[in-house]
């Protein structure tokens, strides 16, 4: 009996966790979405135009782009700054890390 109860509890928790976002969405008074249109008339440069266009046309694609590009940029900057530090000649291996 207790075993069954535990299984049920596990299932209940799982369902609850998975569907909570839906619940949050459904809760509260329904208000209209805020849609933002990026003003591509005010950007001319290629890069900015690229992002603005994908923002306006395909939100999911824009999300994916943001993720990939920030990750990529993070790693690139990490590599570059590491090179610079090595070039300057400051020893980064013997530092102590302050943890919180």
């Amino acid at each position: 009996m207790r075993k069954h109860f535990r299984r049920l509890l596990a299932l209940g928790t799982a369902v609850f966790t998975v569907f909570l976002p839906e619940l949050v969405r459904a809760a509260g008074p329904a208000a209209e979405m805020l849609i933002v249109v990026a003003d591509s008339r005010r950007v001319s440069a290629g890069w900015a135009r690229y992002f603005v266009d994908s923002y306006n046309t395909n939100p999911l694609w824009f999300g994916l782009e943001c993720t990939i590009i920030t990750a990529f940029m993070g790693v690139t900057l990490g590599v570059i700054t590491d090179q610079i530090m090595r070039h300057v000649g400051i020893d980064l291996t013997s530092r102590k890390i302050i943890e919180h």
Partner: peptide, 15 residues
């Protein structure tokens, strides 16, 4: 990443 960026996006006019 570069390949990804080279994929054509749809362009939209804005008014």
């Amino acid at each position: 990443t570069l390949l990804l960026l080279a994929l054509p996006t749809m362009a939209a006019e804005v008014v």
